[in-house]
Each structure stands twice: as C-alpha cells, then as structure tokens.
Simulated assay, not measured.
Amino acid sequence: MQPTSEISPLLVRILYKCWSGAVLNSDEQQALNEWLAATPQNKVVYDEIVSGQWPVSDLQYYNSISYNDNWDRVQQKIAGKERPVKRLRFWWAAAAVILMLLGGVWFWKQQTQLKPEKAVQLADIAPGTQGAILTLGDGSTVVLDSLRNGEVANQQGVKAVLLNGKLLYENNGSANTIVYNSMTTPRGRQFHLVLPDGSQVWLNAQSSIRYPTAFTGKDRRVDISGEVYFEVKKDEQKPFFVNVPGRAEIAVLGTDFNIKAYTEEPYLNTTLVNGAVKVVAKGQSTILRPGYTAQIGEQGNIKVVSADTEQVLAWKNGAFYFDGATLQEVMRELSRWYDIEVVYEPGVPDTRFGGKISRDVNLAGLLRGLQATGVHYRIEQGRKLVVYK
C-alpha cells in the first residue's frame, strides 16, 4: 500500500518512533493523528509499518546511502528512476534508515558486504528503567523500583528517604556510629543517589556503590563497580576518593566525572567533565583535565586520550551513542540495559556501528535496525539473543 499525502522528514521521524515502539510527544501525536485522518489509505500504510510487514531487503537498499548526504540528495535517490515501480514503497519501508542517516536518531555504518536476509520471529523486550536494590547496614535489602516517596530506613539517626525517583539521606546530627549502605543496580536498571554530603551519583545498569550513611572522618570514601557518574560537592577539608577495588583510585575535591569500570570491558575509563581528578593505578598516577579520559589497562598502565563527553555521558542522558563501535561493544551495552544474554555463532562479520538513539526504545526497534544492516539474530529461551551471519 502507498501513502496518499505528502511525506515530510517530521512524519518519517514519527513513523520511525511508532515502528520502534518509542513514545510520541504531544506535538508528534497530533501530527500523526492529522496524517491518519487525511485518508483511510494512510491508516493502512501505518498499520503495515508498525506491524513489521515491510521487508528488510527494502531497508538494505538505503544502507548504501551515505549518512553525509543531505535531505535533498536522499530524496533524489529515493525518487530516482532506477526503481520507479517501488519508489514509494521503499520510502516507507526505509523510514528508520533515513533517520539513521540524516535525522540524528540512529544510523548503522556497516563495513562488510550485506548478506541475504533470513526471516526471524521478533520477540520484543522493554527497555530498562529506574530501579535499584539498597542494602542496609544490618544486611537487609530494600527494592526501590516501585516504592513511593517517603522514608525507606532509619539507621543510627540517619534517614534514607526516597524523593521523586532518587534516594537521599537526612542526618539529625545524632549519628555517632559509622554505618555502611550499598546500592546495586541490576541489569536493566539505573538510579540516582544523593550521598550524605550532597554529592550527586548516577548508577548505570549492572553497577554498585558502597558508602557510609554519614561522612564523619577526615575524608570521604566510596567503592564502586560498573559505571557511575559523579557530581562531587566541593569540600577542601574533606577530599573525596572513589575506589575501584583492586584496580584504581580517583581523588577529587569537587568535580564532575564518569567512571566506567565493567570487568568485561578492556579498559577502566575515568572521564573528566569539570574540575580536576588524580587517577592512581598500581603505582602510576596522572592528573586529568576536563575533556580527557584516563584509560587503565589490565596491567595497570594509564593512557590519557581526548574524550567526547557527550558520548561518554549519553547513558546518563537517556541515549545510546556509538562511534565506530564493534558489534561486540554494542551488544555489551544492549545486554546490560535490556537484560539479555548475547551469544555469537561462528562467522559473524566484523561490523562497526555509529549513531545515537534513545534508551527508551524497545529492543524490537533496535533489532530491526540491526537486521537491516545484514547482521541477523534470533531469540531463544526468552532473553537469549543469538547473533549469526
């Protein structure tokens, strides 16, 4: 079926979001409603797109269009005479790919030859959400995912309070005993924590932080794993230390920085956004400047490289952002956020990807884009993603 009314970049973006399961804002929903009301034929086209009836082979045609092409050039390619019969059908089938290339939503850059498609059953999985597990000083745990605002615990005069999706601590001044809490975000969860000194902490999926309910000593020390972003409240009398057990220590006074310390990643990365930090690892140390990353390898060697802070902080700001990432790098990110297990069959091509997309998109939308580049998959046992050529 072909649409009967004029197609615009905005409408393509709206249809891509519908196709991938993303939520429309009020303006987008109004534009979609007006387009659907224009003719019954548009409704048929819409139903075919969101139901996944458009073949991947049509999407692959648009993968050959450079993402540096401007909108006019892509329109010319789409309206070209090489494929006059399927022209409009290709346009609608390629809604997602056009946005990958030009709209800034998502693009897949493939370095290998496209392979023939194979039909697979698409099983959808919702994206991660806000949530964490709080372990109190006595070893008891509290699941924070569905709790309402209010007091979560009272430990030695210090209250842990949930307020509008973040956990904070209120000290009435009577805390004399040091009590340690731990916060853990499972796969498919992230959370915002305010430490007792007012420092802000964001935990990505599959991460943790251990900290006292009151900083009573001469310094402030926390232990972390996974990926954590800090906005440390400045206190020159109490320096702040982040320990990645057995791997590194980061010393600060007051600054904003991100630590990515997943054990399955090749490097432990500390990226500085503002201020200054000192990174120490196995006898080596370096002072970071804003806009740089300290990469720590398995042997403890430190290498300082320039950083794209927008890309580094994309997870905190609700997006995936890849730039020449390998298939394995992309899949490690997706496995943590969607709580899936990824396995690879022999012969999977060496493919690299780049682009940006909201982390609120259902897995089905991402997998459709993945399949459009010639990388195939199947879902097994509910949450196992098998990748094959």
Rank of each mutant, 00 (worst) to 15 (best):
A175H: 08
N164H: 12
A132Q: 05
V228S: 08
I65T: 08
S207R: 03
A38E: 08
V45F: 02
K81H: 11
I78K: 06
A307H: 05
K384Q: 12
F322Q: 05
A364M: 04
F240L: 00
T135V: 07
I125Q: 05
T271R: 03
V252C: 00
L167Y: 04
N154M: 09
S57D: 14
I287E: 10
D308T: 03
D27E: 13
T213V: 13
N204K: 06
N33V: 07
G355D: 03
R221F: 10
Y321R: 10
P186S: 14
D223Y: 10
G283L: 12
S8P: 10
G355N: 10
A319M: 12
I133C: 07
D235C: 00
A160L: 06
S199E: 08
G354C: 05
G318I: 07
R87I: 05
V12E: 03
V305S: 07
G150E: 08
L272V: 05
D308M: 04
L24M: 08
Q155C: 06
L32R: 00
Q295K: 13
V194I: 13
S140F: 00
L11R: 05
R87P: 01
Y61A: 05
M1K: 10
L122K: 04
A314Y: 01
G165E: 09
G324D: 13
E28C: 07
Q53V: 09
K389C: 06
G355P: 11
R383Y: 06
Q295I: 02
T373C: 06
D256R: 12
W337R: 01
L59F: 11
L15R: 05
G365K: 04
A160S: 14
V194P: 03
Q237M: 00
A79S: 15
L367V: 02
K303L: 13
N317C: 02
V279F: 08
P3W: 10
V23P: 07
R336C: 04
D308Y: 04
Q311G: 11
A281R: 01
G283M: 07
A119C: 04
G150L: 08
K282N: 14
K238C: 00
Y344G: 06
L367K: 02
P127F: 10
S66D: 14
G150D: 10
Q237W: 00
I78R: 12
G283K: 01
D69R: 11
T216N: 13
Q295A: 15
L144V: 10
Q75A: 10
A372F: 05
N164K: 11
L253S: 01
Y338V: 09
N171I: 02
R83G: 12
L114M: 15
T263E: 15
D256P: 00
V158G: 11
K218R: 11
I259N: 09
Q156H: 15
K159F: 01
R210A: 14
L114E: 13
Q111T: 15
A31T: 12
Q371M: 06
A132K: 06
H376T: 05
G324R: 01
V342A: 08
E236S: 00
I133A: 01
E48D: 11
R89E: 15
V330G: 10
G354R: 02
S335G: 06
V280K: 14
S64L: 12
I224Q: 01
I14W: 00
P9C: 03
I296C: 07
Y229H: 13
Q156R: 09
M1T: 14
V45W: 11
T263M: 12
N362G: 15
Q110K: 14
G80M: 01
I224C: 07
T309K: 01
